[in-house]
Computed example of a mutant assay.
Amino acid sequence: MSYRTAPARRAAAAVAVVAAVAIGATACGGTTKKSTDSDSTKSGSGSSAAASANPSAPIKKGLTIAYLPKQVNNPYFTISDNGGKKAVEALGEKYKEVGTSSGTDTAGQVSYVNTLTQQQASAIAVSAQDPGALCTALNQARKNGVKVVTYDSDTNTNCRDAFVSQASAEDLGRTEVQLMAKQIGNKGQIAILSAAQTATNQNTWIDFMKDELKKPEYKDIQLVKVAYGNDDAQASFQQTQGLLQQYPNLKGIISPTTVGIKAAAQYLSGSKYKGKVQLTGLGTPNDMRAYVTNGTVQSFELWDPAKLGALAGYTAVALASGQITGAPGETFTAGDMGSYTIGKDSTVVLGKPTVFDKSNIDQYHF
């Protein structure tokens, strides 16, 4: 894509996708990454890291890279997977996308993994709805020679070869609290409107939000509830309404999901709470432009989802070509996005998120 986002370049340092302090802080139980060895590619059934990486190996031809998003026809995944399509096809490989129309159909995701394994896909790029539900199927795929890349939302570390993270989980969790605190003057009740209770990425970010809120400067901010809209517009709209009814003194809502933040903004913009209850989180500029313009939302953040999808594609092709195994410290080239280094827990980090507000939102079109 031709538009620019914040620097998402170079060398993904060994970022702590999950900190020990964060694990267990949420009742959802969706984040279980520390339950596995940090160098996951050296253990676990289906491991493919026993082979040596050859960074000079040519890109194999005839590869099929299959994308399995959390939810097809979700605008966010449409953007990210189209970015993957362009990257994969630019390398001369075959791209395909499969998936369920529900963001909580874990059985459906398992079924698609099994089908892709039977079809002998070269690699699967999957955004996991649940951290553990896909493990058996994914490791069976790996035993059959299929490379597994997770993107956007991870599975357990010993169930894939690499995870392409949109940004440091810590950066995302802490900065969303910082944005909210600024908007409400560091005082008042806030709530979180998340996606599914089992969503790995959501729970990881929320853990960091909770940890950030422990700092002295946020002593006058109270997190009263974490609500779940299941990445469904109507459910998220209703959850927003319910939060405001249950907590009449609510000062702000953080929604780290593009579906949730848009639905919350839609409700707030047509209610008496517009401009009084602040809203931030993760959204796309095209979805949120009208709400920033009319004063419902001051600022929010996101990465470029097209670049996230592209990086997942480049990573999958590098794995399938034997240029990398997913081991920390390996480097590979992601087309015109430059060189990336695999960090801790076999994680590749896209880069820093971009904050959008009235001053810059019209520069972005995705």
Rank of each mutant, 00 (worst) to 15 (best):
L319V: 05
A8L: 12
Q278R: 14
T157N: 14
G275T: 07
S269G: 04
G44E: 03
Y95P: 06
S346T: 07
S271G: 10
S43R: 10
Y67F: 15
K187N: 15
K187T: 09
T204R: 10
K352C: 00
I221V: 11
T41W: 10
A22D: 13
R160T: 07
I221G: 03
L172H: 01
L282F: 12
Y67M: 09
L319N: 00
G173S: 12
A316P: 09
E170Q: 15
S299Y: 03
Y76E: 06
S127H: 08
Y291S: 10
S2E: 14
S359V: 13
L243H: 07
K215V: 13
T325W: 05
L279S: 04
N74Y: 03
I261Q: 08
A306I: 01
D207H: 12
L91D: 09
Y291R: 09
A51Q: 09
A191E: 09
E301M: 15
T333Y: 03
Q183T: 04
A320G: 05
I124N: 02
C28N: 13
Q166G: 08
T296A: 04
T26H: 02
T296K: 08
V292E: 05
Y228R: 06
L223G: 13
D336S: 14
T32E: 11
D154P: 07
V149P: 04
A233K: 10
T31K: 02
Y364G: 11
S269H: 04
H365V: 11
G188A: 03
A327P: 01
T26N: 12
K214V: 10
M337T: 05
I79T: 11
V146D: 00
K352V: 13
A264I: 09
K187D: 07
L311C: 07
Y291C: 06
T315I: 14
T41F: 09
K96D: 02
Q166K: 14
W303V: 01
S168Y: 08
T5V: 14
V88P: 00
A123N: 03
A327L: 07
S2P: 12
C159R: 01
Q266H: 11
G99H: 06
A265E: 05
V15A: 10
G145S: 08
E89K: 09
T26D: 12
N158C: 04
I23N: 06
S45F: 14
T354N: 11
G242L: 10
F208C: 05
K276C: 01
K262S: 11
T284N: 07
I253D: 01
T157R: 14
T64S: 13
V98E: 01
P7F: 12
L308A: 10
Q183W: 06
T31W: 02
